[in-house]
Design a protein around this nucleic acid. Structure first.
Lengths: 110, 110
DNA sequence: CGAAGTGTTCGTCATGCGTCGAACATTATG
DNA sequence: CATAATGTTCGACGCATGACGAACACTTCG
């Protein structure tokens, strides 16, 4: 009996696929989610990430997007009690695709 | 009467949208196409880019993919006679999304 | 135990996307 | 002029994707 479980469905570092990762980033909601994760040092609670944005989606839709991110290998999910804490898989991503997260996280200058 | 025409439908630099660009890159065929363009100094003839790959698609499908790339702002098309010459919009892309093309062009180490 | 909080899963719906062949447009070339 | 070469455009088809509500699972808190 552990107090923290990992979530399945996430690929190993070596299995990260660039097209799949880009596909996960190609959705505005997921891109926003990842960019917030990228500028956040620690973990963020699953449901809190979009709290400061103007994005309002149902929780099932959010869950869907998080699944896409997780299965593409972008995020890692840690379960504590009834809550999920999400982090970017920075090390794996920068090892496989150096500079990608940084490039994607650059603020737009509109 | 000019001997070289530009092709419409391409966004200005300021209108380049990251999610749209990522969406254009999220397809394996288009990603391959862009990566080949990225490592090529000059122009490439539209139909020749995938010649050295194992990708075989119909010309209508290729035309569709090129349209997606063009409308996302990734490529520039110059028409000479009956031929199209494709280039990456390096300057615009690196101005708006520094490091992105480089990150996406890094060879996979499988 | 009962109720509330947090997410996932399932079914459904509409939309978008990748693919193709056929037809077309345009420009060489014989 | 007739034919070939190069791409685009136009349906059509099947499959994937994003959205939602409802139901469920699990933990936490009275």
């Amino acid at each position: 009996m552990v107090d923290s479980l990992e979530v399945d469905g996430a690929p190993d570092r070596a299995d990260l696929d660039l097209a799949t990762v880009l596909g996960a980033l190609a959705d505005p909601i997921r891109l926003t989610y990842v960019r917030i994760l990228a500028r956040t040092p620690g973990e963020i609670r699953c449901g809190d990430v979009l709290k400061d944005t103007d994005i309002t989606i149902s929780k099932s839709t959010l869950s869907h997007h998080l699944k896409v991110l997780r299965e593409a290998g972008l995020t890692h999910t840690r379960v504590i009690g009834v809550r999920r804490f999400i982090t970017l898989r920075r090390d794996d991503l920068s090892a496989r695709f150096p500079g990608l997260i940084e490039a994607v996280s650059v603020p737009a200058e509109d």
